[in-house]
């Protein structure tokens, strides 16, 4: 059930993000979702891509520092209170969300949230019990 997220270390300066996207584009890899956590000097770019393994390999070959993290892709109804509903389940189970970002699936009325939580296994169980749909890796990469 885990989706592979690709993270890249980038210095906080012009042109670096372009470089990452450019490398991926040249390799024919599509970026599904992307978010940046920044500090004063550098940032961590987190991405969901169409082909994580290939992405990691081309980025490494281009000299980037890359890591792979297990995250959850959760389907959230695209309506007011949709995300809150999901987060309430985690809150009740005392599971902390490290970070989260989302995107809307084209042509549908659902949003997909990428979550990194403290305890992934436990999160999957409570979310399933709460009837929240969790996407498989194949589903996410293929969007």
């Amino acid at each position: 059930m885990f989706v592979k997220q690709v993270s890249v270390f980038l210095e906080n300066k012009e042109g670096r993000l372009y470089e990452v996207c450019h490398v991926l584009g040249d390799a024919g890899i599509n970026i599904r979702a992307l978010c940046i956590a920044e500090t004063a000097d550098y940032g961590v770019v987190r991405m969901i891509v169409s082909d994580p393994e290939k992405a990691i390999s081309v980025l490494r070959n281009s000299g980037f520092t890359v890591s792979e993290t297990d995250v959850l892709a959760v389907v959230v109804p695209d309506k007011p209170g949709g995300l809150a509903q999901v987060l309430r389940i985690l809150k009740d189970a005392m599971i902390n969300v490290e970070y989260l970002y989302c995107f809307i699936e084209p042509g549908t009325d659902r949003a997909i949230d990428i979550m990194r939580v403290e305890n992934t296994e436990a999160a999957i169980n409570v979310l399933k019990d709460g009837n929240v749909e969790i996407l498989t890796p194949a589903e996410v990469y293929g969007i």
């Binding site: 997220q5 993270s7 270390f9 956590a37 920044e38 500090t39 550098y42 961590v44 987190r46 520092t65 890359v66 890591s67 993290t69 490290e98 970070y99 990194r116």
Partner: peptide
Amino acid sequence: VNEKIFSDEVKRLL
């Protein structure tokens, strides 16, 4: 930064 110390969590880098 090499992959041994890199983390997707900013707080680890800090």
